[in-house]
Structure formats: C-alpha cells, structure tokens
Design a protein around this nucleic acid. Structure first.
Lengths: 194, 194
DNA sequence: GACGACAATTGAACGCCGTTCAAAAATATG
DNA sequence: CATATTTTTGAACGGCGTTCAATTGTCGTC
C-alpha cells in the first residue's frame, strides 16, 4: 500500500520532489505511521526503488520471451525503453544513495540482482563454450556500457551535442565487445532459432 | 567567493546535504545575498558544478601532458581517478537536474564541453585518416561507456558483485571498440612517440 | 461485557531548507 | 552634506524528515 503509492508518487514527481508525507496523506495515513513501518526515509525509498527493480526485471523477462531476433539487442533496447518510459523511477534507483551504515533487507538485495542475472545468462549463451566463465564479468561490464549511454540519453547530453541514436551507439559498443570475445552474435542466435 | 566556497562545501557534504545557507554563512554573507547574486538555488548549483567541470578539464589536460604511453588509457584512468578523488563533486554534476525552463549561461555551456573536446581530439588522432569524421560520435559513445563503469564503480555495484578492476573493464571495452574502428592504438601511438 | 496490556496511529513540534521581500545599511552622485 | 541608488540583511513562509507523547484500536483474559 505505502510502497505502491510511493512508487506511483516517485514516477510522477521524481526523487527531488518526492515527499513521504504526501504519500502517507494519499492513502489516509499520517507521516508517523510511515516511520513506524519503514523506520526511516532511506528505508522507505529503498523499498520503493526495489519495486522499480522488480518491475524492470519483469519487463526484461517479457522482452526476452517476445524476442524474435537478437536477444542481446532486445536487452539493450529494453534497457533504454524502460528508462525512457519511467524516467523518474529509473533515475531514483541510481541517484538515491543510502548512508554507509544502511543495511538492506535480503529480499531487496536478491530482487535487485535479478536483472543482472538475466543478462549474465544471455551473455553466457552468446559466448563460445570455452569462454563461458567470463560471462559474469563481461555481462556486468556491458551493462555498465549501456547504462552510461542511457544516462546521457536521458539527461539530454547526446541531443545537446547534436547526436541521435543513443540506442544504436550502445548496441554498437556492445556488439563490438562481444565480437572481440568471439561471439558471432547474429549468426549464432539465428542458428538457435532455426 | 560564493562559488569557490560552494564548491568546497559540495566536496565535503555532497548534493543531498548541500546548503546554500551554510555556504553564505561561511563567507560572512546572508542567504538573501546569495539569491541576489545567483537568482536561484539551481543557478547557484549550476555554477558550482561548472567549476567542477573546469577543474576536471584542467586535470585531463595535465594527465595528457604527463602521459608517457597510450593516451586513451590515460584518459580512461583520469576519468576514474577524478571521480574517485572527488566523489561528491563528480556525482553532483550528473545528479543535479535543472528545471526544464532553465537557461544556462553561455560560458558555463562552453566550459562544460571542454572535456569532451579533448577526448574527441584524442580519438580523432587515434583513428585511421579515412575514419576521422566518426570521431565526435565515437568519442562521445566511449565517454558514455567509461561513465557507466565509473558510476557503478563509485556506487559500489561492482564490488557488491565481487568484481575488481572497473578501470580495466572500462579500458577493455574502449579498446575493443577502437580496434573494431580500425585502431591499432598501441602500435600507432608508439610509432608517434618514437 | 469489563478491564488491562499491547499495538498501531496520530499530528504537533523541532530544526533544516529554498524562497521572498520590507527594512536597514552601504555606496554613489551632485 | 543630502539624496538617490544599490547592496545586504534576516525574519517569515511553507515544505520536509524525524521524533514522541497522547490517543485510539485490538486482543486476550476473566
């Protein structure tokens, strides 16, 4: 209830304008109740952001089920698509920094890793068999690559510089790295779907 | 004076805890004066962040003058080095979002582009002559790649996953893309310094 | 049903912050 | 020196995270 409404409010106003009071008020509770339930603003925000990760992981799974071509391409496109459609939510998950002594509940930690797991799996599938053990590391590095492009896309940095095609650029970079790792991504995936 | 002290305060406390009042107080002015000079908190923050870009561009130039080997590598290493040593400042420049109707003064806009210009120049120098026109686009894409790795490095995402070597991963991705673009980066630069 | 113990909720108060603006102080001009 | 203009002040406003004494609600026991 509180998390659900918090998630909605975050989607509307973003991190800077987010207000725990407003969330409590919207569902007919007082601000004190919210503190009883979550203990702190940071814990509340963390729960709201974990909700975003859940939604995202769900959408990634769907994108992969619906994927008719290159699965890595589907992943890259979904990364951008999700961020663009959920700009405030997406930013909040990367911009909310918890205090150093913050302890995240295990379920949240697990939930937040689901997206990465899915990507690791896809990268492992794309790699030649003798290179599968580099999948975890490479997958995370490629996520970082796409993330950087996505960040600049959303902030308008690319369009300020007169550049289109953030998705295409990210995909090029990803494909270049995969090719250097021995992946003939297109032909390999095509063979699997035939 | 105000920008200088604001910059220092930002370095100490980061964006979330930043206070214009505190800055004014530290140099013996009142909060009203700050509003007279800058007009708004966002304008003040923008000026503070532009200062960070200046400092960074200055450090990049120094890193390039001092560079004895692969200049692209020096750029990547400096990106991380700067961010790690100036964590609060670095985050602020990417996390402070101005309102949509915000108009940035021209000098700030120019100053913020200097870092990118330097990178574009280095990428253009590294590329084969017939591919120089792709330098602006590729350079910006590679900056995004490094930026993504740097973001995850600073947030602890990589170390949470048990991964070391964020700089090395970023550099690998950059070098893979440059190689695919026809750059034998190492041999080309070595030939120039011989 | 009455009572007591415990749990859940309330919302005012606190201190902090961005923003505003009338009053005061400082500076410039003739 | 007197007046006009500019600069600075800082209290007030409303909003926010946090706290906690008071109130309300729930449950178990007799």
């Amino acid at each position: 209830m509180l998390i659900s409404e918090g998630h909605k409010h975050m989607a509307e106003v973003g991190l800077t304008r987010f207000s725990a009071r407003e969330v409590a008020k919207r569902i007919g509770y007082s601000i004190g109740t919210l503190y009883n339930v979550f203990g702190s603003y940071d814990h509340f925000l963390s729960a709201v952001n974990t909700r975003t990760f859940e939604q995202w992981a769900y959408e990634v799974r769907n994108a992969l089920s619906d994927c008719k071509g290159d699965r890595i391409q589907c992943l890259v496109e979904n990364y951008f698509s999700f961020a663009r459609r959920n700009r405030n939510l997406w930013r909040a998950i990367y911009e909310h920094h918890v205090p150093d002594d913050f302890v995240m509940p295990d379920e949240q930690y697990i939930q937040r890793g689901k997206l990465t797991e899915a990507v690791v799996q896809e990268v492992a599938n794309a790699l030649p068999p003798e290179k599968t053990d580099m999948a975890p590391r490479l997958a995370r590095s490629l996520i970082a690559t796409v993330h950087g492009h996505c960040t600049f896309d959303l902030s308008g940095s690319f369009s300020l510089m007169g550049l289109d095609g953030a998705v295409e650029m990210a995909l090029e970079r990803v494909q270049e790295s995969l090719r250097m790792a021995g992946v003939g991504a297109q032909s390999r995936i095509a063979a699997e779907t035939t």
